[in-house]
Design a binder for these strands. Structure first.
Lengths: 224, 224
DNA sequence: GAAAAAAGTCAAAATTTGGTCAAGTATTAT
DNA sequence: ATAATACTTGACCAAATTTTGACTTTTTTC
């Protein structure tokens, strides 16, 4: 089955060129010349996205974050310049790689293949969990609300990781304790209550919404 | 029925030792001293896998990913050192737990039991029970009448869960008490009556129909 | 039809649980 | 070593649930 690639760039000549080139190599290609168009074309469920950073209106970084709320697939940024800061911003936004313009088509193909191959292997849990505006990067152990990075301690993040990786499921305090502290650790339910409180306060302050729901008599659940 | 455990490690002495020890505790054990052997022995359909990370050829992490394509069961890594990065890698690869070498056999047994127990709990098949417009999601512990979510307390939901999972069967109050409160609990028939009343009121208000039928002198039955 | 048994109703008491706070202890960074 | 940060604990309060007991209604039995 052919892979689907979505190209997002406002330069018509470039998208046209890329499109034919990738089609020649067996990919199914969708083109979007604006961010809005890109969002509309997400329903093609691309296996990989090529994303220009500099675009009028919502730029590539913003768009990337929005996309991450919907689907998980490799996102490769196309960019004229690449500074350390760009890279950081891009990775935070949920991007996977950079290709500096002008780029060779061979290099582009190679990178695309590498990412698709890697993604193929991914039966692993997603490394980025998102809900609404919240981005939880499990491999970096970082949490973002839009631009802002929220800081959580180890235990706090462990709890967030556990709950958010199993959204909508209710876990009682013992189960959470077991998952975060270890199978045999002696648990005091107060500890969990307190950590949940801290987590909630931070999330609420930043986002203004509740992510952890209390199920009375049963435990807590991550709302998705 | 005895649980089946697959041990994968290239150290012959260790696998031999583990094997006899686990067998002594009632487990059926298969041993694989290489990744290839492990793959070949997946057809024994183990209930749990102990996996060494450091092995020649395909290492434990790679193997784990491959295994995950075939079967779902707890995978415990055996590893000499455990860093934060190891943990992340392991979890990504689909592992469930770590045991750091050298480890106590007691600890190993405890962890194995914990995982098997949890696996047991999570694998209850009929997740959603429906009758007419009513949807009872057992794993999320949520009840819906069409779009509308109905809220039930813990005991109420427990009773609904028990009755609706055994539709059309009549259970007397003692039997319900036993199922929901626990074996030995001292029962007062008033408690059940009262809970049934609350449940009925909520269901009736939302749906306009009776789901719990009284069988006079016998008990209650969930109408399907 | 009256008495007895079972089931239903209601409100109030008792209990459990969760949220919060403040202070103590442990761990980590400077 | 000191300061800062993270983690844990216990106490307290408020809220929600659970249980209780008295009372009413329905059903069965004689």
């Amino acid at each position: 089955m052919a892979y689907r690639i979505l190209i997002v760039d406002d330069e018509l000549i470039l998208t046209e060129l890329l499109s034919t080139h990738l089609q020649d190599h067996g990919y199914m290609v969708s083109v979007a010349n604006s961010s809005d168009e890109a969002l509309a074309k997400l329903n093609t469920k691309p296996n990989l996205i090529l994303l220009d950073i500099n675009m009028p209106g919502m730029d590539g970084l913003e768009l990337c974050k929005v996309i991450r709320n919907h689907i998980v697939c490799p996102i490769l940024f196309l960019t004229a310049r690449i500074t350390e800061q760009d890279k950081v911003n891009g990775l935070r936004a949920g991007g996977d790689d950079y290709i500096t313009k002008p780029f060779g088509l061979q290099e582009l193909l190679a990178r695309i293949e590498a990412h698709l191959r890697r993604d193929e292997r991914n039966n692993r849990p997603p490394e980025v969990v998102t809900s609404h505006g919240l981005i939880i990067n499990l491999s970096d152990r970082k949490v973002f609300w839009n631009e802002q990075e929220l800081s959580f301690s180890k235990r706090e993040f462990d709890i967030i990781e556990f709950l958010s990786s199993n959204p909508n499921q209710v876990f009682d305090k013992e189960r959470i304790y077991e998952a975060v502290w270890g199978y045999d650790a002696e648990g005091d339910s107060n500890v969990i209550k307190e950590h949940i409180r801290k987590i909630r306060a931070k999330l609420m302050q930043a986002s203004g919404s509740e992510y952890i729901e209390t199920v009375w008599g049963m435990g807590y659940r991550w709302k998705k």
